[in-house]
Each structure stands twice: as structure tokens, then as C-alpha cells.
Nucleic acid binder design. Structure first.
Lengths: 108, 108
DNA sequence: CTGTATCCCAAATGATACTG
DNA sequence: CAGTATCATTTGGGATACAG
């Protein structure tokens, strides 16, 4: 029986360039596809939808199609996804701190 | 002036498939190249050394060449690298928890 | 609005052999 | 021991057009 590296589990599930950003945004509650899209304009549609599917397959987010016309779909964190809260919060805080530190060095 | 997404800062700096694993291992103190290598046999030498160089360039780790024969080089976290502690700890804990949950479902 | 389909490029990753 | 060099593969990422 193998004891895998816990970091591997983590990076393989929530790693990838954009996944933390998506999950982080969903922490505040459900968001519609378009909201996510507008919130991260630097990701192409294809990549966004792919990450959403992957995260859904990993059981971290839940996709709800309201079956209306016009279409309305929202995404939310599952319970498993919620457990990522501490990780996402820590990452975002670190990123914010690093960006502030960088701004300082530039003479702000 | 732009306020970048903090998650982007974080993922671009410490993202990448193996970087969190490397940083996490260094949290316990300096490690020699060979130790790191043996600890993560699933990474090829080339990739490991590249991540080490990248992390060094990002100011997160420090490489020390003792100039001995045979060669002896160790890597340690810089102060900036230490600030990642909470992130790494949270990630590792989450990964461990997820792997345990998986084992349960398999009937352990 | 919420996606799919297609084509394309670049970066990341990897196996293996070799070097100071 | 601590790396480099080389070649090949895989994955990630993206623009654009189109569809239900």
C-alpha cells in the first residue's frame, strides 16, 4: 500500500494555471457562466469550460442547468470544494501580499 | 494602475505541477540536491533542476554550492519562501485529507 | 446566454545518455 | 554528487467561427 505525496494529490486536483482562480471566485457563492467569464477575461472560453468540466468531474464544483430559455447555468462549490477554503484564502492572501511588496519596491 | 488578480500572482509564482512539492519539502530545513531528487523520483532530473532554478529566480529558494569535492549543494527557503508556509501547509493537509477520504470509499 | 468545433502554437514535461 | 544536453511527447492555452 502506497502513501502518496499529499502535495501531488493537491496539485493534480486543484493545480493548473487557472483552477485556483475559478474556485476562489466561487467561494462567495454560486456564479453564472457569464459572470465567471467576465471576471476572468484573460482565459479563453475553451479553457474556462474545460476547467469547469474538470473541476466538476473532480467533485469540487456543481453545475446547475436551469433549463430556461435563454439558458441559465450556474456553478457552485460542492462540500468537497468548500474544504479548499483555507487553501484558496491562503493563496490569495499570499498573492496579494506579494503584489504589494512588489509595488513597494517600485517606489509606491 | 491595475489591481491584478491575487490568484494569478500566486499561481504564476508557485504554480506549476511540482513546485509546491519542492517548496513543501524545504520547509523542514535545507536539503541537498540528491535528497530532493530521491524524495520525488517521479520528477525527471531536468524538470527538477529547472524548477529549482525558477524558484531561485523568483527569490523563493536559495542555492548554496559548498564548492567541495565531491560536489555538495543545498537548497533552502529564503525569507520570502518562508511566507508560503501557510499555503503549503494548507495544501498538504488538504491533499492528505482527500487521499484519506478516497481510501475510505475504497473500503478501508 | 451557454456553450462546441476546429485549427494552431507554445510551454511543460519526460527518458536517456553524458559531463565536471 | 550535481548537474547538462538532446530529442521527443504531452498538455495547456488560445483565436475564431459556429450552434442550441
Amino acid at each position: 500500500m502506497e502513501i502518496p505525496c499529499p502535495m501531488r494529490i493537491a496539485t493534480e486536483t486543484m493545480g493548473g494555471r487557472w483552477r485556483p482562480g475559478i474556485l476562489w471566485r466561487l467561494m462567495d457563492g454560486p456564479m453564472r457562466y457569464g459572470e465567471l467569464r467576465r471576471g476572468m477575461p484573460w482565459i479563453s472560453e475553451k479553457i474556462l469550460i474545460r476547467h469547469l468540466r474538470d473541476l466538476e468531474a473532480a467533485g469540487l464544483i456543481l453545475r446547475t442547468d436551469h433549463g430556461t430559455q435563454p439558458p441559465q447555468v450556474d456553478y457552485r462549490l460542492t462540500e468537497a470544494g468548500q474544504t479548499l477554503g483555507p487553501v484558496l484564502t491562503a493563496m490569495a492572501a499570499w498573492g496579494a501580499g506579494r503584489s504589494a511588496a512588489g509595488a513597494e519596491r517600485l517606489g509606491a
